[in-house]
Amino acid sequence: MAIKNLLALVVLLNVLGVSVAQKGLDLNYYKHRCPDVEAIVLRVTVQYVSRQPSLAAALLRLHFHDCFVRGCDGSVLLRSRDNDAEINALPSLSLRGFEVVDAAKSAVEKKCPGVVSCADILALVARDAVSVINGPSWPVPLGRRDGRISRRSEVNLPSPFAGIAALKQGFFAKGLNTTDLVVLSGGHTIGISNCGLINKRIYNFTGKGDFDPSMNPSYVRKLKKRCKPNDFKTPVEMDPGSVKKFNSHYFDNVAQKKGLFTSDSTLLDDPETKSYIDRQVATAGSSFPKDFSDSMVKLGFVQILTGEKGEIRKRCAFVKPKTKETLTFL
């Protein structure tokens, strides 16, 4: 990386109020021990996402789930004998893209065995996956260590059924602010969900056969054509008309009361989040790419393990064998 670009990235981090040195991460963390790590991860990610672009949304979501439960420590990648790991929790059952992280880890291990954490690889894969579909990119300071604990009971992610107060509280608990909430919600510009998560919202919102009054009636009619009353499996685009493009179209839909989830619609209930949405609509999303990049950098620092904490896994699904471990893994 050119010195000019490196300096620009460091300035960006400082503007965000994030001290790389204090947090234990560094843009050049693997410079001497695995200098090609970013190139290796990018190559693998391009191979997968260029063939299956929908993986971009899946990998971005995988990174988000990881960081929101126990921090960005790769714990979402772990498997357990008793199905009690994070990936066994209900909100995690639809996660996918693990094969991309595993392939990237395997490629890195061949070049630099025992050096690069799965947590760092997941952070890089998420960034690169979004870039492959022409979305924004962002600097990824490295040096995270892998956690050894993954518990289904600890999965407490922002719910698609949550109102604005609960969403803000959840983000604040992770050191993220209201702006990060609305900006990262913009990640719904790519990806799909399913009829099961909106069925009640469009057919029986209050138990009287009605739909959520915060939704645009024309949008509800379209959703009903897609999702029949007892349909819980059919896929539904989170950002109709723009699901394959990473852009600000999501905010246009929310502003028109066409947010798929309650958590989307409720962004209009807070002055700060509504103001951001209105600004993106008025300016065709002029600041969204940079804002998203900034918030993703902040997300990547949530409750990280550094130094002697955690470990460097050889395979992302399994911790290193140790006696008297809290959770027994395969």
Rank of each mutant, 00 (worst) to 15 (best):
P91S: 12
S94L: 06
R96G: 06
V100C: 07
V101L: 06
D102R: 11
A103D: 11
S106L: 02
V108H: 05
K111C: 00
G114D: 02
G114H: 10
V115P: 00
I121K: 08
A123V: 10
A123C: 10
L124N: 10
L124R: 08
R127I: 00
D128Y: 09
A129S: 15
V132W: 14
I133C: 11
I133D: 05
N134C: 08
G135L: 03
W138C: 10
L142Y: 04
R144M: 13
D146S: 03
D146H: 05
G147D: 14
S150R: 02
S150Q: 04
S150G: 09
R152G: 00
R152Q: 14
V155L: 06
V155R: 11
L157I: 13
L157E: 05
P158A: 10
P158N: 10
F161V: 01
A162L: 01
A162F: 07
G163P: 07
I164P: 02
A165G: 01
A166I: 11
Q169H: 13
Q169A: 14
G170L: 07
G170V: 01
F171D: 06
F172N: 12
F172Q: 11
F172K: 14
G175N: 02
L176M: 00
L176K: 01
N177P: 05
D180R: 09
L181N: 07
L184C: 07
S185M: 14
S185K: 13
S185T: 13
G191E: 03
S193D: 14
C195I: 06
L197W: 02
N199M: 03
